[in-house]
């Protein structure tokens, strides 16, 4: 599979509709493609190019800029170990090496069973909880080597399926803007001053704040 499914095309169109210009939806749509396939397939990028009206090269230009988009299949679980400064001084590199050793792979690669990919990543905004990591972008704070091994076992056994969806899925709740209550996208052309800017009573002549 590679092009978006019919359901996802419907979703893609809803997402595109939220933005004043279709290309703004590109990153959300790349996430959608990654959610569908676990990575961003070449065909998916071509499909997105059609959907937002740009060339495939432009889609790839955007896609390849961002670390999270994988253009080749990765493990079902992507484990990102932070080694940035706050984690580094609290054992982040050791944690990474432990992960590499216990999974038998180098950072940046995937276990032969296709289950785990390990990456060494930059600061993930959990510095006070060092050392830390994410599995498919779900946090594990102050994790010891033993806890790491237990986590891997749990993942392998499917015990964390509720908490950790397969790679590609981020938020499991989607924003939905009901048509009835939507204000509508702020279009670029022909926009006028919003009504509320002037609809309130004018400031009193005197004593107005400086």
């Amino acid at each position: 599979m590679a092009r978006l499914t019919v359901d996802n095309v419907v979703l893609a169109k809803e997402i595109i509709g939220r933005y004043p210009r279709p290309k703004s939806a590109l990153i959300p749509l790349l996430h959608l493609a990654q959610e569908q396939d676990g990575y961003v397939a070449t065909d998916a990028m071509e499909h997105l190019a059609e959907l937002v009206g740009v060339t495939p090269a432009e889609v790839l230009g955007t896609c390849s800029f961002y670390e999270m988009f994988k253009r080749e299949p990765v493990g079902r679980y992507v484990i990102n170990v932070c080694t940035n400064i706050a984690c580094q001084i609290m054992g982040g590199e050791e944690l990474l090496h432990h992960a590499e050793e216990s999974l038998g792979i180098r950072s940046g690669s995937t276990t032969p069973d296709g289950l785990f990919t390990v990456e060494d990543v930059e600061c993930i905004a959990a510095c006070t909880e060092a050392p830390c990591l994410q599995v498919n972008y779900r946090y594990r704070h102050r994790i010891s080597h033993d806890q790491f091994d237990r986590m891997v076992d749990d993942l392998r056994a499917g015990r964390l399926d509720d908490e950790v969806p397969p790679h590609g899925t981020l938020a499991r709740t989607r924003q939905h803007i009901p048509n009835a209550t939507a204000a509508g996208p702020g279009f670029v052309e022909g926009a006028e001053e919003p009504v509320w800017i002037t609809s309130r009573p004018a400031p009193p002549k005197e004593g107005a704040k400086a």
């Binding site: 961002y66 670390e67 803007i177 204000a183 509508g184 919003p194």
Partner: peptide
């Protein structure tokens, strides 16, 4: 009715669109 059209029955309307990035400091 906190977000969207005619917020809290006033003439103030705005959509808030949740958007997220993809890994780039």
């Amino acid at each position: 009715g906190y977000v969207g059209k005619d917020i809290l029955g006033t003439d103030f309307s705005v959509d808030i669109v949740l958007h997220w990035g993809a890994g780039a400091y």
